[in-house]
Design a protein around this nucleic acid. Structure first.
Lengths: 146, 146
DNA sequence: AAAAACTCTATAGTCGCTATAGAGTCAAGT
DNA sequence: ACTTGACTCTATAGCGACTATAGAGTTTTT
């Protein structure tokens, strides 16, 4: 049962280029090749890629996933590390959510400022954005993204 | 009242390289130069950069900010576009928040799965991640990031 | 046999910076 | 005058997780 990269892409819901990218990054092992140099994948690859995609759908970084795969590949190790990794990831997500909620509050405040005046010149939103002592610096950006 | 790039960076709370980057991207106009080819900034630059940084602290993309600056520079236009842009940005943030909350639910579910077993082999978390019919594909990633 | 669909490698682009290399400028101290 | 140090300059590469493109080869369908 050997499938080519396009079929693997369909089965795992990701793009062909992404699979090649994962291979280059060492997340997927190099597969066998056909006579015409096409990649040939088997069950193990399919399952591993689905694992990766599932982790990605949970917004884990490739380096987190690499760590999990490493643990999976050495099943004798302690399970605690898996827990630790997951715990850290949950915390990251929580932080990102609260940062975004605060951000949204600022944006909604700003929306209120538009009095409905027609000219940009008088627009309270733009004035609010130019106002330096309004919110101060709140860096919202984090690692959790795509 | 002319200041150099380092002072402008301090006043606006961003790095020197970032200022040069904004110039290259056309968000800040090219400033005058000193005899020794150093950039010299005035009030208008300071205010404009603070506007940009404020927008960035609200997680707007540079292209959104470019649009706002464009509106600001043509004060005769209708204010409606500013509203539209802000509204769209708020919606993006809302979508990102709800995606992240759903994501967190999945992660917390997963955390429950660890029965405290010692070996990775038996770890319910890794098993949960390998399970394909668990959550399906939920693409959480968005443009809102840093 | 020809056309369509697939695959290959290699390279560059996305976004908003950050980091580096190597050179030039300027003010203060000796 | 000379050195030190802090600042500035340009140009280029890197981050993460892809996406897009070019140009070639392979397989399948018509």
């Amino acid at each position: 049962m050997e499938i080519r990269i396009g079929d693997l892409a369909k089965r795992s819901g990701c793009e062909v280029v992404t699979i090649r990218y994962y291979e280059k990054e060492g997340l997927l092992p190099k597969p066998a090749r056909s006579g015409g140099n096409f990649r040939l994948y088997g069950e193990a690859h399919i399952e591993r890629l689905q694992f990766i995609r599932h982790c990605r759908s949970l917004d884990m970084t490739l380096s987190e996933i690499r760590a999990l795969l490493g643990l999976r590949d050495n099943p004798m190790q302690d399970c605690g590390e898996v827990n630790t990794l997951l715990e850290a990831h949950i915390q990251q997500v929580e932080m990102r959510v609260s940062a975004l909620l605060q951000l949204k509050r600022h944006l909604v405040d700003l929306r209120e400022k538009c009095s409905g005046s027609r000219s940009v010149e008088a627009c309270g939103i733009l004035q609010g954005l130019g106002n330096r002592n309004c919110h101060g610096e709140s860096a919202t950006n984090s690692q959790t993204s795509g």
